[in-house]
Nucleic acid binder design. Structure first.
Lengths: 264, 264
DNA sequence: AACCCCCATTAACCTATGTTATAGATGGTT
DNA sequence: AACCATCTATAACATAGGTTAATGGGGGTT
């Protein structure tokens, strides 16, 4: 059983996982198999509607989406951004029906597999299963951090925080280059993510530009000084480690795999 | 293997689980064993501090607690209320260190067990494990709903929504009587949970009282008309089903237990 | 090239909620 | 029974952010 760290998987999920653990060839091929059934979707199409039954577990291979909840009168809150490599609501699949909707922001490729595969995964490749479980737990942590933002940070702080978060998450899957990345998002969506009005998001982005912290050109955003932007957003180091730290997973693995690890 | 539905478990966790599935005697006794190592804590004591290492998995047996995140300057957001029968941050235990603190609001009894027991649980009692996994998933859903509240509901709506949520959750574990329950919470904590100032929470509670929807007497709160309060809070039926619906679990069980169920 | 739709931008104005300050309950402690 | 610390309650005032409305740009489509 050989570990191949050299060849980086082409799928973002694989790339994300290899960023914190080495995968055996067997693990890689199982993962590849999970991602085999790919569906393609246009921009602004609903992958899941509030109230709909859950079917497959979905993994975002390419493109962005949002998970969002709506009130009867149309007010809407974006709960989370789904980025390439993300599983869409990992633990939510335990529920029968969705309490939120999922909508693409760009043309997207989504991998679909049956929930039962996860059980299989736990039996055959516990390390991989732990990685997914861990990744799912991060979702909750990200949402809680957004709750802190919306509840207690000012508009400027929230916005800065979100930009840094996206930058961090995207860089794990290799979608950031020199502080620049694509932000396929209207200001309305930003507003719904941050609990602000569209006008105020506009004002706030302007301030960030005026201060010289970011540049916006179409859907390209450039962060000039991550450190300063992070400090404006009161970005927490603990949170940073949590959303990208490699070592964390060892902890999960210790807890999860009571049997001897394969490949060691 | 006999199902004993007659004798209701004395622990709130047991009571919560039996509210949506019948437990075998074996399952009950394993659950009882998990809850055997009980620690007692005074009011306002930290069960876990932001940045601290996770140790045991904790179950609230008696009393209330809050999970909260703080900004460097002291602003604080209450992420969730931990009620009797709740597991404290089920999936968070996959992380090495806590990104939030947990503090009791009342004298509390907490059961502690090693994370490894959960693996054991999955092997020996998959139905029970599914129930816990499902219960953990609810945590995320509750946090997402709070995010919607804080981001998009008005002060009055949020407050009404929270009261209904607590009423629902507490009634599952038998802590509500005729719409009346104990709310061991200062207005400061309510404010931190709802992203409001303490003064404004006060105003808002007053309005709810003036409208005649609730009564407050010390820590006793009485909800006169749940339906109307729920409608003020734009309480979503989907969400309601999610936090207490029995049938949901069948779905989880189908997915989780590929082996034949014990006891059937 | 005229039309249209969606989106960003900005100004002017408005209001829900925050802040500060004060007073009064409540309950535990000596 | 006086004291102290917390907590609730309200008033008066301040402001961050919401609302409305108008303008202009960009990219399709006819």
């Amino acid at each position: 059983m050989t570990r191949a760290q050299a060849n980086i998987p082409s799928s973002p999920l694989g790339r994300k996982i290899t960023s914190y653990m080495n995968l055996t060839d067997e693990e890689k091929s199982f993962l590849g198999e999970l991602e085999r059934n790919v569906t393609r979707h246009g921009s602004r199409s609903d992958l899941l509607q509030q109230g709909e039954r859950y079917g497959c577990v979905r993994v975002m291979r390419k493109g962005w989406a949002i998970r969002h909840k709506a009130l009867p009168d149309g007010r809407r809150q974006v709960v989370n951004f789904v980025l390439p490599g993300d599983i869409i609501g990992f633990y939510c699949n335990l529920f029968e029906t969705a309490d939120h909707g999922v909508t693409t922001l760009t043309p997207a490729e989504v991998a679909n597999f049956q929930p039962e595969r996860i059980i299989e995964l736990f039996k055959l490749f516990p390390r991989l299963a732990a990685a997914l479980a861990w990744s799912g737990a991060k979702e909750e942590a990200i949402i809680a951090e957004r709750l802190l933002s919306v509840g207690r940070r000012t508009a400027l702080e929230r916005t800065a925080h979100l930009i840094v978060e996206l930058l961090r998450r995207l860089s794990i899957v290799g979608l950031v280059e020199e502080g620049r990345f694509t932000l396929p998002v209207t200001q309305e969506i930003l507003a719904d993510a941050l609990g602000l009005s569209i006008v105020h998001i506009n004002r706030t982005l302007r301030r960030l530009r005026d201060i010289g912290l970011i540049d916006l050109a179409g859907q390209q955003i450039t962060v000039h000084d991550v450190k300063q932007l992070a400090s404006v957003g009161q970005f927490d180091e603990l949170y940073l480690h949590l959303i990208q730290a490699p070592k964390q997973l060892e902890h999960a693995l210790d807890a999860k795999s009571d049997r001897k690890r394969a490949g060691d």
